[in-house]
C-alpha cells in the first residue's frame, strides 16, 4: 500500500460519506443521478465477487463491504425512501442503462486478461466504472443548478480516480512486472471524463462563484 493508493481510497470513502450525508441527513438526492448510483452498485457487485472466498487483508474486506453496502443503500434511499425519492429529478435523469452496460459486457467478453468467470466479471466492472459517471455528468449539465454537496461529491470521485493513476505509476516503478493495461486504460479514460468538470470546478473555486456547467 502506497500513499497514493491510500489517499485515493480515502477520497473515494469521503465521496461516499458526502453523498450519504446529503441523502441521510438532508433527506435530499437533488442533482444526484440514480442511474449512476445503480451502475456503481453493479460495478461493486461484479468486482467484489471474491469478498468472502479470498481474504487479502482486514482493510480490503472492510473497504469492500463499505463500498458495496453504501452503493446499495444509496440506491435504496433514492428508490424507496419516501422523503428522499421526492427530491429525485427523474425527468432529467434519462440516460439508458443498457447503452452503457451492454457495450461494457461485450467488451469484457472480447478483451480480458484471462477467460474465467471472475476475471471477465472483474474486467466488466472496470469498463463499467470508467463510464458510470456519465449519467451523473449529463444530469449536472442539464439541471445547471449544482449544490455544494453534489459538486463536492463529483469532485471527490474524480480526485479518487486521479490518485489511483498516481498509484499505478508508483507501483509500476517500484514493483517488478506490474503491468495492467486494461486497468490503466480504463482508469485513464475514467479520469479524463472528469476533465471538463474539474475545469469548471476550479474556475468556480478560484472566482468564488457558484459552480455551473455550460449547456
Amino acid at each position: 500500500m502506497n500513499i497514493f493508493r491510500l489517499a485515493g481510497d480515502m477520497t473515494h470513502l469521503a465521496s461516499v460519506l458526502v453523498l450519504l450525508l446529503k441523502i441521510h441527513t438532508i433527506k435530499s438526492c437533488a442533482g444526484i443521478s440514480l442511474k449512476t448510483q445503480e451502475l456503481y452498485a453493479l460495478v461493486f457487485a461484479s468486482r467484489y465477487l471474491d469478498i468472502f472466498t479470498h481474504y487479502v487483508s482486514f482493510y480490503n474486506t472492510v473497504m469492500k463491504l463499505i463500498f458495496l453496502g453504501s452503493a446499495f443503500s444509496i440506491v435504496w434511499y433514492i428508490r424507496r425512501h419516501k422523503l428522499v425519492r421526492r427530491s429525485y429529478d427523474k425527468d432529467h435523469d434519462t440516460f439508458r442503462h443498457y447503452f452503457i452496460v451492454l457495450p461494457c459486457l461485450i467488451l469484457a467478453l472480447l478483451i480480458h486478461e484471462k477467460f474465467t468467470f471472475r476475471v471477465v466479471m472483474w474486467t466488466f466492472s472496470l469498463y463499467l466504472e470508467a463510464v458510470a459517471i456519465l449519467p451523473q455528468l449529463v444530469l449536472l449539465q442539464r439541471t445547471r443548478n449544482i449544490d455544494n454537496l453534489t459538486g463536492q461529491y463529483v469532485f471527490l470521485l474524480g480526485a479518487y480516480r486521479a490518485l489511483y493513476i498516481l498509484n499505478w505509476v508508483y507501483r509500476y516503478f517500484t514493483e517488478p512486472h506490474y503491468v495492467h493495461w486494461i486497468t490503466w486504460i480504463s482508469g485513464l479514460i475514467q479520469t479524463l471524463l472528469y476533465a471538463d468538470f474539474f475545469y469548471y470546478y476550479f474556475q468556480s473555486w478560484k472566482n468564488n462563484v457558484k459552480l455551473e456547467l455550460p449547456a
Binding site: D50, N60, E113, R118, V119
Partner: peptide
Amino acid sequence: PVEQAIHDEL
C-alpha cells in the same frame, strides 16, 4: 498476476 490485481486493489 491478474488474480493478484483482482485481490489487492479496490
